[in-house]
Simulated scan of single mutants.
Amino acid sequence: MLLRKEFTFDAAHRLERYRGKCEALHGHTYRLAVTLDGHSDDEDMVFDFTELKRIVSEKVLTELDHAYLNDVMDQPTAENIALWVWRKLEESVKRPNCELHSVQIWETATSSVIVFREDVE
């Protein structure tokens, strides 16, 4: 089974190694989807949604929401943000019955990146 929870956060960034409109300071309302892959446990759940919300809030949203992302990571592209989120969450959501499957970041309503385990160095 795949279990997914979505979040939003607002942040600003600039892409220093990019030539174009996005090299200037600007902001987005990002959408984040965290997907776990697993099977039901003894409570018939892959993962408790409340617990997942707490973990993502503590590990990710407290650092990214209303932040200048260049202070948090180098070259904060959607790709790099998704990789950063993966690294922040992977160990915290791992259970005997499930693990992190993907992290998806939308920079706009129609533009997103999905990171899978094999994409993480």
Rank of each mutant, 00 (worst) to 15 (best):
E63D: 14
H26E: 02
R17Q: 08
D37T: 01
F47W: 08
C22M: 12
L25E: 03
V46M: 09
E23N: 09
E16I: 10
R19Y: 10
E6D: 15
D48Q: 04
A11K: 14
H28M: 05
A24V: 07
D37V: 03
K53Q: 15
E51C: 08
Y68F: 07
T35C: 06
D41C: 05
D41H: 09
L64R: 00
A33T: 09
R4E: 13
Y18W: 11
R54P: 07
L69E: 03
Y18N: 04
V60P: 03
M45T: 10
E58H: 11
K5N: 06
T62S: 08
K59N: 03
D41E: 04
F9D: 07
M45W: 13
L61A: 03
C22V: 07
T50E: 02
D48K: 11
F9L: 14
D37W: 04
D41N: 15
F7D: 00
Y68G: 00
F9T: 14
L61D: 11
S40H: 12
K59I: 01
R54V: 12
I55K: 00
E43Y: 12
E16P: 01
T35I: 02
A12C: 15
R31S: 03
H13I: 13
G27D: 05
I55P: 00
A12E: 14
R19G: 08
D41M: 02
A33G: 03
L69H: 01
E6M: 09
T50Y: 13
E63T: 08
K59D: 06
D41Y: 00
T35F: 02
F7M: 00
R54T: 13
A12M: 05
L36V: 10
E51M: 06
T50Q: 04
F47P: 06
R4A: 07
H26N: 01
D10E: 15
R31D: 02
G38I: 11
T8M: 07
R19E: 14
R19T: 13
V56M: 02
S40P: 10
D37C: 10
E63C: 02
R17W: 13
H66C: 06
E63H: 15
K5Y: 09
H66E: 11
I55S: 01
V34G: 01
K21C: 07
E6G: 15
T29H: 09
R14N: 11
Y68D: 08
E51K: 14
A11M: 12
H66N: 02
L52R: 00
L15R: 02
V60T: 04
F49T: 05
V46N: 07
Y30H: 08
A12D: 14
T29A: 08
G20D: 06
K21A: 04
M45E: 11
E23G: 03
L64W: 07
S57V: 01
S57D: 06
R19D: 14
A12S: 15
H66V: 06
D42F: 12
D10K: 14
T50V: 13
F9S: 05
L32T: 12
M45V: 08
E51L: 11
N70Y: 04
S57Y: 03
L3H: 08
H26C: 00
L15M: 07
G38Q: 10
H26D: 02
R31W: 09
I55N: 04
G38T: 11
Y18I: 05
K53C: 10
L32Q: 12
L52Q: 12
E58W: 12
T35D: 01
E58R: 10
L25C: 03
S57M: 10
L52T: 00
E51H: 02
T35R: 00
R19N: 11
R4G: 11
